[in-house]
């Protein structure tokens, strides 16, 4: 079975207050970084998965992202999926 590599990015929905992001933004300005208008903290999840083809890998990872990795009530997610050989540098 071919291997695939995926990265799932989970972010708080824009309508949900991100107090940790706000605190980090405030710290960034104290570091002297200027011009940051948005800083939101999310999660990045690295996954290696075996599947018969890209479509199967995609459907499995979409289920995983929607039902476990993210809570759709407060979070959005994006999936970046590639054959493992293309992402071996990761």
């Amino acid at each position: 079975m071919p291997n695939f590599h995926a990265k799932v990015q989970v972010s708080l929905r824009t309508s949900v207050l991100d107090p940790a992001g706000e605190a980090t933004k405030s710290a960034a300005s104290k570091l002297g970084i200027k011009g940051i208008s948005k800083l939101r903290i999310g999660k990045a999840i690295d996954i290696d998965i075996e599947a018969s083809d890209l479509n199967e890998a995609k459907s499995q990872l979409e289920l995983l992202s929607d039902r476990l990795l993210a809570n759709p009530v407060i979070e959005d997610w994006t999936l970046d999926l590639n054959p493992a050989s293309l992402s071996s540098s990761n």
């Binding site: 708080l12 207050l17 107090p19 605190a23 809570n71 009530v73 407060i74």
Partner: peptide, 17 residues
Amino acid sequence: LTELGLLQGALTRNKDL
């Protein structure tokens, strides 16, 4: 209970951390 879907909504990080 909210993660399970038996109650609606979600509990998130306190406003002042």
